[in-house]
Design a binder for these strands. Structure first.
Lengths: 208, 208
DNA sequence: GTTTAATTTAAACGTTTGTTTAATTTTGCG
DNA sequence: CGCAAAATTAAACAAACGTTTAAATTAAAC
């Protein structure tokens, strides 16, 4: 059954996100996935290789979408910014468990291979976003901004709200256990805010 | 010697930030601090209580500074925003190890007490910042914005750049091992970017 | 139906974990 | 000095860790 591999990966994702890589034991994962302890070594080789498999499994398709968005010549720079915000907010909020692992636990992971792998994925996505901004600047629609920090701001805002979920639930009077209600309220809020923010920040007319 | 307590706290901070709470053993900390393993239990009681002591030790003074800034009636809303950015960037970048622990590892910490403690600290600081923005809105200098997300954006940007340090070093062609050079270049960059961003975002004249 | 390979299992492996113990050394005070 | 309290130590503790083993079960192929 191929299902078992996926079961293990799903359980690992959930537990790594909640308790961290080191805070999660192989027994935890096996128990949660309902498989024998030894199956994890049998399928993935080791706990660390399980993490690698998880990352590869989850981060395969993002880059393709960004590339498509970039190539679309029918869209104006402002359109692309809007789509970009939608894309990232949806992706991160809906896969926030995986996003937790990628951002929170990256620095604590000792394996150089894994760190390198994650950095590469991030760098490639970064380049795509930079190209969108650069295009807007070339067309004299966007003003000159610090591109790295502009991207960092968008990513950082989403990450912040995602990682400090319980904090923002308290601030915004949302029940933190109502996963579905949280998304329904939060996603449009973040999208609107980021679009507004970028509009003010990037608009060449707001030069100061 | 009181020094030994501080030694242990410093080592714990460094190692928790680098390897995470669960990724750091009490033996690691004792070894790094140059003290006997049993001293940690002797002084702090347990590994978890050591973390509590660390948090209490580091997060004592921030709130006072924010309160002072808020009360200062000689400063305009824009002045306060500038000072706020300076304050936060300096604080986070210079204490980025502690900041790592507070943001990255908070969700993975199982103890409800500690989580509650950290959330409380963050909430209090949050309220102070919101009051600054609210004051600017009352004085018709700032426009109406989503306050929670505006604060989230500032915090998120700094956190993003701080946590993904190695990524931003690669992006900005800074040697990631040159700690001092990194700060010298990065701190003014982040400050300038955030001030510019907030100027565009908050200015009542940029209504759209 | 027999044989071979793939899967699944319980048990055990040697380490490492956080914490405690009990003995020893250092310190502060009369 | 003498002596009690505090600090420090090496050793041991049981529990949990990631991984391996070798036997048992299931699936696939001929």
């Amino acid at each position: 059954m191929k299902d078992k591999r996926v079961h293990i990966l799903d359980s690992a994702e959930l537990l790594f996100a909640e308790k961290g890589f080191d805070g999660t034991s192989v027994r935890d994962i096996a128990g949660h996935a309902g498989v024998n302890l030894a199956m994890i070594s049998y399928y993935f080789g080791s706990k660390e290789k399980l993490l690698v498999a998880l990352i590869a499994h989850r981060s395969s398709y993002t880059h393709g979408i960004l590339e498509e968005l970039n190539k679309d010549e029918k869209l104006s720079p402002w359109d692309k910014i809007e789509r970009l915000v939608d894309l990232y907010v949806d992706k991160i909020v809906n896969n926030y468990k995986f996003h937790c692992i990628m951002t929170m636990h990256l620095p604590t992971i000792q394996s150089d291979d894994i760190r390198e792998m994650i950095t590469d994925i991030k760098l490639k996505n970064f380049e795509q976003v930079k190209r969108i901004i650069a295009e807007g600047q070339k067309k004299k629609v966007f003003r000159k901004v610090d591109m790295e920090l502009t991207v960092g701001c968008v990513m950082g805002t989403i990450t912040q709200v995602t990682l400090s979920k319980s904090l923002y639930c308290r601030l915004m009077h949302i029940d933190k256990n109502d996963e579905e209600g949280y998304r329904k309220k939060m996603i449009p809020k973040i999208k609107a805010h980021l679009k507004e923010l970028l509009k003010a920040h990037l608009d060449i007319k707001n030069q100061n």
